[in-house]
Design a protein around this nucleic acid. Structure first.
Lengths: 341, 341
DNA sequence: AGCTTCCTTGAATCGGGTC
DNA sequence: CGACCCGATTCAAGGAAGC
């Protein structure tokens, strides 16, 4: 970070070590062993050592950020209060704290506390009077025409998305792409420079590339760096029309199509079409659709194209998945199953 | 607080001033005025002043709490990071941070940030090795037989519950009773003493009285004190049977497996086995088990055979009764029913 | 092929009493 | 303070295996 010039970066996203301070081993009720975060990089001798470390990287972040840049940090109760207090002391101005509510957290196996089911993000500007960027419309569209709230329900990173090597996870704390997707879509513009000082396996870089943002990553561990570069190499940027986000008010769909897009079930840029393929529309990053110069929600655009008094976009639009044509409602059903509380 | 003796209180619940630092007036899009927290008690000149104030009351709380007592604090992003860091510095040990997810938050009228839809609570014990109380079973029951998570969805305080005087709310930040209900049910026992150093209009006292807990409140403002006393006066304690909660096994009387054998519920010579019948062991007259040349207690032998770090013999071993296969724990339950006072 | 069942796993500060 | 023993304790998702 020290090598970067002053005021050169639009956004810093940081996922620093949490300083977990774990004790002995932990076993599940069935006797199996829990694979804990015991890496050297998460060990600090004291709160003071952790505070010094935190103050140092936050001060650098503040120097590198443009005057209208912003900072995101993610953490758990082990570290987030210290991080939050220090960034306030350094002059950052907190805009929101955001809670990532995990759809599928690890249970508390011993029944000793509440299930630790969330992590906390802090979003802060350079100072009380500083400007910052917030794509209000894109967030509202993504959230089914309701204001995006400060609590986000997202699954943890697993399945195909989780990087593995010989069947073992490459990084113990890989973050879900959907989280970064929302952060970058909410608080950066196309072409912005995003810095991640704890790059790990490069989730920030991968999502930045996909969304047409530039990225810089700092990572000490060579293994993580290699995995990150390989991963980002494979990532394809979305094209122009998919990246255009909604600018004007549209009718309110009943279910958030945007959630499917954010979640990756429907990729931005996907072409969806009516059953007879009379119209083929492109899905955009915020869940809106584009058909030539016409744009709108899945319902609104379907209605306009048909000249009908109304349209249920969920059954009108179809997509191809595994050589099969399905209504997008099928994706919603899958999503509902996956995220039901 | 200074007048209270050392180690005299079981739980502290604190809802301190949030140090909101609101700038000018806030108006809704329709021009109406938002009734914000601008009271004198919420004004602090600097972070330092707020930190000093926080350190002072937290240190008193630590002194007054019993060694196995616990602390709850609620706050927003304006103050919670400072409070959390300071309580860690004072030696409190964070057990969970809990997110109160508001079902009906105030929208962000200007569309400049995410809707501020949650507040954060911290639950902490007296120290890393300190004991604390957690009614795991009661929480699990309350949550439909799933572990209670660290994110709680509760409506804000309104309607009949909101205290009003001449149509104006008596206190600007009255907390919902459901929140205190869950806090007290989770971390106190009947008869425990609960202290609220920022009593306000007495939500803590009202719920404590209802749940059969004793309460102490500190409140500077006479108006709030009056409203609180009047409110708590009207509150009726729940009766004995309504207060009963699901108890954990820990608090049930212990039964030795030998007692079941002695009692004749499990005959010596009975063959018991794991669910998949990989191992079949014989019950001996003293309540120990034999498997070939290996012998041991229900727990010890189960542990050895599986090569597991530990084993609950009550659920691991099964027996046949009336053509049905049951865990031996079923016999213990019968025994407990038969020997109850 | 499609459905069911089983197994694995995830940023976790994860016992208590007696000798 | 350590050793030892008793015995309490898990949810959702994904992938593999079986039917």
């Amino acid at each position: 970070m020290r090598s970067l010039p002053d005021a050169s970066v639009d956004l810093v996203f940081a996922d620093p070590p949490y300083n977990l301070q774990l004790g002995g081993d932990l076993n599940r009720p069935d006797g199996s062993h829990v694979d804990a975060v015991t890496d050297e990089w998460d060990r600090f001798d004291s709160f003071k050592a952790y505070d010094d470390f935190t103050r140092a990287w936050l001060a650098e972040a503040k120097r590198i950020l443009k005057p209208d840049g912003a900072l995101w940090v993610i953490g758990s109760y082990h570290n987030i209060f210290r991080v939050g207090a220090i960034l306030q002391d350094l002059g950052f101005w907190i805009l929101n704290d955001v809670v990532w509510r995990k759809a599928n957290p690890m249970p508390n196996f011993k029944g000793t506390r509440f299930t630790n089911a969330h992590e906390t993000l802090i979003w802060a500007s350079q100072g009380e009077k500083a400007k910052y960027h917030f794509n209000y419309r894109a967030m509202k569209t993504l959230n089914d025409e309701l204001q995006m709230r400060s609590d986000w329900v997202l699954p943890i990173c697993g399945g195909q998305e989780r990087l593995k090597e010989d069947g073992h996870k490459v990084h113990p704390t890989q973050k879900p792409e959907a989280l970064l997707y929302r952060v970058l879509l909410a608080t950066t513009e196309r072409g912005d420079v995003v810095l991640d000082p704890f790059f790990g396996t490069g989730t920030t870089g991968a999502v930045a590339k996909r969304l047409g943002r530039q990225w810089i990553g700092c990572e000490r561990e060579g293994l993580y760096r290699e995995a990150a570069l390989k991963r980002i190499e494979k990532e394809l940027p979305l094209d122009e029309s998919a990246l255009a986000t909604m600018q004007s008010r549209k009718s309110a769909p009943k279910v958030a199509f945007g959630a499917l897009v954010e979640n990756g079930m429907i990729q931005p840029g996907t072409e969806i079409f009516d059953k007879k393929r009379r119209w083929v529309a492109t899905v955009r990053a915020d869940g809106s659709l584009a058909y030539g110069k016409q744009t709108g929600s899945i319902h609104g655009l379907g209605k306009e194209l048909q000249g009908a008094p109304s349209c249920n976009g969920w059954t009108f639009w179809h997509y191809e998945s595994g050589g099969e044509v399905k209504p997008i409602d099928a994706a919603r059903q899958l999503y509902l199953l996956a995220t039901e509380d």
